[in-house]
């Protein structure tokens, strides 16, 4: 990790128990650099297309609120640990597309993401795909990307 002072750190998480090490690393770095910390979450409600219920708008609103709340929980934990400036962003839509767009447009210095885990549930990125994504983002955007594995070994 570079010794340059980080002003704004973005932690992209899904809220899985496996994300704890990613969150912990983000909080540690925010405290170390006295940086602004933003938790980023992207909602993908594609599965609702197969749900035979209506109206979906009511359920979608609940999903958005659930995601915001999950981010608020993380903000609360970060604040309890002493991070002064912390907020969250919830984006909606295709996760890859939204992350790419965010990384290209943000003024943040560093984005922290978890690595694919072998646990239950789908990983958004496969390992090769994530490498490609990081490469693209570091070329096109002005943001560095750090991967944190569930076993808490950071790499950038």
């Amino acid at each position: 990790m570079s010794t340059d002072r980080l002003k704004h750190i973005v932690c992209a998480v899904r809220g899985r128990p496996e994300s704890r090490s990613t969150v912990t690393r983000a909080v540690d770095l925010a405290l170390e650099h006295q940086a602004h910390l933003t938790f980023l979450h992207v909602i993908d409600a594609e599965f609702l297309e197969h749900a035979t219920v209506a109206p979906l708008s009511v359920i979608y609103a609940e999903l958005v609120e659930m995601a915001r709340f999950a981010m608020l929980v993380l903000c609360d934990r970060a604040q309890r640990r002493g991070v002064k400036e912390v907020d969250h962003i919830v984006l909606e839509g295709d996760i890859r597309k939204q992350l790419r767009q965010f990384a290209a447009e943000t003024q943040a210095d560093l984005m922290i993401m978890g690595t694919p885990t072998p646990g239950p549930g789908k990983n958004i990125f496969k390992e090769e795909e994530l490498k490609q994504f990081i490469h693209e983002m570091e070329q096109w955007g002005n943001i560095r990307i750090m991967q944190v594995s569930a076993t808490n070994t950071a790499s950038s």
């Binding site: 998480v13 899904r14 809220g15 899985r16 128990p17 496996e18 994300s19 909602i43 993908d44 409600a45 599965f47 609702l48 197969h50 749900a51 219920v53 999903l63 659930m66 995601a67 999950a70 239950p120 549930g121 789908k122």
Partner: peptide, 16 residues
């Protein structure tokens, strides 16, 4: 079951 699992997965708690 499917919708509960779908929402739980979005919150980071998938049910396999």
């Amino acid at each position: 079951n499917m919708v509960t699992s779908g929402i739980a997965e979005r919150a980071g708690y998938p049910i396999t």
